[in-house]
């Protein structure tokens, strides 16, 4: 009895399952394959579109320009001000002249993305007209290494640092081409993780040091250190996501910027 029932049961069940699995298998190949062929076309389209858009000039050219990643954008700030606005609040109280700021930071940007952004013509006008350019970049380059295990970490770090240094040098050169007189300010990286992993802190400090070396090679560029500011105040200066600065964190960076630049 058992033998007679089990055979058709097993046979048809496996037949149905195999159909499902084969179609699923084909679907997953399609899902990951279709984009491989589609993407280059899209990329070409978008890159050919860019120069045309480049004629658009932002209506009000402003004094302060903020470039970079989520920290430049102000992610985590409860009042949605960010470094630029907070810095403006500081200096606008000091002298009468009203200044404005433009923020073209894009959260999750890495140094590669910023280089692409600088290259696109649409932002040339805002770079050329700014008096102060605040750049926050590199945090995502470095943070991506979190996925590495200990074996590959050092190697991956060297590789990422090398790429980042190249991008940073290119950025400074490109900004200087467009705008030789502006004051540049580079926001250093802080360590959002409390001192659980000394090895990672060491890498972060090395990263900051290398940034500093490149930044200081330009006369009107300043490096704004944040590591020291945040070190003992992570509870106050980090927002609820425990990664981005809070409002008071941004305030401290803005004050430090004010102290260094003025």
């Amino acid at each position: 009895m058992y033998k007679k029932v089990i055979w058709p049961l097993v046979f048809f069940m496996s037949l149905v399952l195999a159909t499902v699995f084969i179609s699923g298998f084909i679907a997953s190949i399609v899902v990951s394959k279709s984009e491989e062929t589609n993407y280059p076309e899209e990329q070409m389209e978008s890159s050919s579109d860019r120069p045309e858009e480049g004629e658009r000039i932002p209506e009000d050219s402003s004094d302060i320009l903020i470039l970079g990643d989520s920290i430049g954008f102000g992610v985590g700030d409860e009042e949605n001000l960010g470094i630029g606005e907070r810095y403006l609040d500081l200096i606008n109280t000091e002298d009468e002249k009203e200044r404005t700021s433009t923020n073209i930071s894009v959260p999750s940007f890495e140094s590669d993305d910023l280089v692409n952004l600088i290259k696109s013509a649409e932002n040339e006008a805002s770079i050329a007209s700014a008096n102060l350019i605040i750049v926050s970049i590199g945090g995502n380059d470095l943070n991506r290494l979190d996925y590495e295990d200990n074996v590959t970490l050092t190697l991956a770090f060297e590789k990422a640092l090398k790429k980042y240094k190249g991008n940073l040098e290119f950025l400074i050169k490109e900004i200087r081409n467009l705008n030789p007189d502006a004051q540049l300010a580079f926001i250093g990286l802080y360590d959002p993780y409390s001192k659980k992993e000394p090895e990672k802190t060491r890498l972060l400090l090395e990263w900051n040091y290398e940034t500093r070396l490149i930044v200081e090679s330009d006369v009107k560029s300043a490096y704004i250190p944040t590591y020291e500011l945040f070190k003992y105040h992570l509870d106050d200066y980090l927002s609820v996501d425990e990664f981005h600065p809070s409002g008071s964190g941004y305030q401290v960076i803005a004050e430090e910027l004010d102290r260094v630049v003025n």
């Binding site: 499902v20 699995f21 699923g24 298998f25 679907a27």
Partner: peptide
């Protein structure tokens, strides 16, 4: 840039097809 949004059930079927 070319990611798509699917339900977890569909995703599970995909994963199990690969396992198969």
């Amino acid at each position: 840039s070319s990611t798509i949004l699917i339900s977890r059930f569909q995703y599970t079927v995909l994963i199990y097809s690969l396992l198969w």
